[in-house]
Amino acid sequence: MQQSGLRERSKARRRDAIEVAGLRLFTEHGYSGTTLADIAEAAEVSPRTVSMYFPTKLDIALGFTNRGCERLTEALEARQSSQTVVGVLDAFLQKEDQSLDKERKQLVADMMAANPSLPALRTPSVERLIAAVRRALAADLGLPEDHFKTRLGVATLFGVLEAHSSAHLDENTTTSTRRIALDFLAAALATIRATP
């Protein structure tokens, strides 16, 4: 049993080293200028080991973002009928803020800034989150998923998430950032709901 725990921690450390090496290289040399072999060398593992943990470079580049999308998707899909999307998002962001790895988040932000086409990619994790947000907001608004107001709500929610995420890289932000973001989202959804 103890051997199994040691093995899992060793795998997690290896995976982490590969991801950090990849993010740093993508920042320094660009996404297209970095190979899996480069990442393997920087992480001090074999290229085969990199491929075992991350089948593609994109999995390394967007892994942090994809994991966040998956956690929010799970939270939205597990919500109780009495919970609003804003309430679920509030609980999610509080939990994320408490476990935030600021160093990793900064590394991801730097990598994204150095590779501006990457944030626009819609991975399966992002697609699932968009669908979950659309379903949840449609239910909250009492509208079909493809209704203009629902789509406007989805766009607003993702804009709020982006602004909140960026604010956490600033050392001067406080927990009030989350409250401002959520109050803005709630007001926007109230406006969407009230507009004929």
Score class of each variant (00 low, 15 high):
54 F>S: 05
161 L>D: 05
52 M>D: 08
180 I>W: 12
94 Q>W: 15
20 V>N: 00
170 D>C: 14
27 T>P: 06
56 T>E: 10
112 M>I: 01
59 D>P: 06
109 A>V: 02
152 L>N: 08
163 A>N: 01
78 A>V: 00
171 E>Y: 00
92 F>T: 01
69 C>A: 15
72 L>H: 05
150 T>Y: 09
187 A>V: 04
152 L>Q: 14
196 P>R: 15
25 L>Q: 02
183 D>E: 13
6 L>M: 09
157 L>M: 15
117 S>T: 14
153 G>I: 01
8 E>Y: 08
51 S>D: 09
134 R>Y: 00
146 D>W: 12
127 E>C: 10
155 A>R: 08
39 I>F: 01
188 A>N: 10
68 G>E: 07
108 V>N: 02
171 E>V: 09
12 A>N: 09
108 V>K: 08
158 F>W: 04
64 F>P: 08
158 F>R: 14
153 G>P: 12
39 I>V: 15
126 V>Y: 10
118 L>E: 03
38 D>P: 06
196 P>K: 15
99 S>I: 02
180 I>K: 09
83 Q>P: 15
182 L>F: 09
169 L>H: 13
192 I>G: 06
137 L>G: 07
159 G>R: 04
115 N>K: 01
24 R>N: 11
131 A>V: 07
170 D>Y: 11
21 A>C: 06
78 A>E: 11
46 S>V: 05
32 S>E: 12
192 I>F: 02
128 R>E: 07
125 S>N: 03
98 Q>L: 15
87 G>S: 05
64 F>C: 02
169 L>K: 03
4 S>W: 12
27 T>I: 02
102 K>I: 11
52 M>V: 11
160 V>I: 15
35 T>A: 04
164 H>M: 10
152 L>Y: 09
1 M>A: 13
27 T>F: 13
101 D>Q: 01
146 D>S: 14
71 R>Y: 05
160 V>Y: 09
187 A>I: 04
25 L>D: 04
85 V>E: 00
156 T>C: 11
147 H>N: 15
